[in-house]
Design a protein around this nucleic acid. Sequence first.
DNA 1: TTGAAAGCGCTAACAG
DNA 2: CTGTTAGCGCTTTCAA
Lengths: 327, 327
Amino acid sequence: MTVSRFLRSPERVARDTATHIQQALQVTGYSPNLQAGSLASGRSQAVAVIVPNIAHSIFADTLHGLGAGLQLAGLHMIVSSTGYSLAQEEQQVRTMLGWAPAAIVLTGRMHLPATQLLLMAAQQRGTPVVEIWDQSPQGEAHAFQQIGFDHARVGALMAQALAERGYLQLVFMDSGVEEDFRAHERAQGFLAKAASLGLEAKHLHAAMGEPVEQGGQCFAAWHAQQGSAQPIRCGMGFANDLLATGALLQAQRLRCRMPKEMGLLGFGDFPVGRYCQGGLSTMHIDGERIGQACAEYISQRLSSHGLSVTDQPSQIVLQPRLLWRGF
Amino acid sequence: MTVSRFLRSPERVARDTATHIQQALQVTGYSPNLQAGSLASGRSQAVAVIVPNIAHSIFADTLHGLGAGLQLAGLHMIVSSTGYSLAQEEQQVRTMLGWAPAAIVLTGRMHLPATQLLLMAAQQRGTPVVEIWDQSPQGEAHAFQQIGFDHARVGALMAQALAERGYLQLVFMDSGVEEDFRAHERAQGFLAKAASLGLEAKHLHAAMGEPVEQGGQCFAAWHAQQGSAQPIRCGMGFANDLLATGALLQAQRLRCRMPKEMGLLGFGDFPVGRYCQGGLSTMHIDGERIGQACAEYISQRLSSHGLSVTDQPSQIVLQPRLLWRGF
DNA sequence: TTGAAAGCGCTAACAG
DNA sequence: CTGTTAGCGCTTTCAA
């Protein structure tokens, strides 16, 4: 008991005892069992983190920022990925709950009803639940803390930005990943905005598979279909920078005149597009910042016992930044 | 007790009881507490994973493969990063041991003596310890399972490849990260090989900071220093593709004639270099495969109780693949 | 086939 | 300031 006390608040132990203990710790190489600790105290040191794909640069950045922030609070990340499947997500949440995590972080606001119930129950029990990389549009209720942005709005911004550059026809190349809802929302926002601007708009869908390649193929198919029609200044938005990079390379191969007759606008500011010949314009999102903000929220939430579980979850909004390159 | 039994081997419970239990599970939304389970059984479901930086694409890929593989075995990843600091690594290992992990995965074979002792003790107690992304050279003893490759050898391969392409002067741009030992080993291997081929060789060091930018600056400085000397066909190897990308862009700006007078060879096959104008040649490593192999090793090791703890740890070698682009 | 008893390693609460 | 007691939620073992 005294050792336990020494480890969490050394000042509450007598000088001599402290010295003894410290020596014993050295000699035995003791390290406290965190699982036993959590079990006894009811406070877990683990934060459950669920992302669609660890290897995607935006989520990797987010994990980096999140991990760094949590470390400061003495928390650890248990990470798993869903492969953009809500069914997988439910499974993950279910087993993650077995760790009695101090907090749960997941990507996006779309979940299966069963998942939603599990999460609400967890939150009821006092476990903070955070949805990152997304945000419910104004007027839509959200049960959990959100750190992200409104994808439909970002899609609209993309359309508007292209329109302002003078492109008269707009196209959005959507993700081939069926359950990448955030991409689809950007598409909807893009198309709605185009319509409200009175511009002709088209919704392309990349096929599933390696996205750079699919982006190229989808672009080529679209380009071929345009055929000999007189070229109209066309602005194309993309679900992400991988698709956009593939399209950019293909467009160069097809000798499209950019930016005069054709303007491409990606999303995410992935490293892959950053140094492309000609420059890929994109919407930059600070993924690491999302992770940091999430860690800060969790740390604060866990320390401030004053915060009631019934407090309204809020939204932390990260503004995407438009990067024009090669223009 | 019967519920516990039902959950791990339903067939050892009577039909009726099983039905009852299942209903109760549904109604209550019960999920077993993994921490309590580990504590009681002495078997943890957590695997501790320590990488230099979660956001680096090669490690992100590795985590992706590792996570997918471990999931099949019902294991979870607790992930932390060291920022390429051995001191941090020691800290991480120490706290990770508190999870009584089923296995420990860390990056590289270089550790502080204290870390090494902790790991050996853990292995002694039956916890598999795996070093990824590295391999002790032949003749050097290694205490732990290794999944990776000999970096000095890869450095030598890079030098040889450039030499075979006809470059008469060789340069290696090393990482500015002090404790990126694997990069430094590649440098050493590169330079040693160059010497043994009788070629002039130079060792550059990028500064710390954003690697693409530093790569460009370091290249520019080197180029300026070359001055008006008559151009010799020069092959340059890089610690990684980020530095190489920066150098490639700079070389294009400086109108170096590539590949005729200058050949660049990166390392890692990061996405960022994959679609560069002109094409960045590189050594491709399958990071995801390293993660998969690691997961397979751990799963197998945990299931085969037959394997004695005194078994010699082996080495799983992944061959890098040379990718010439833009030649 | 089921359940009772004991204990994993720790911490909360209280007594000295 | 230190130590005792009880118990976190589960599994192991053994008895019924």
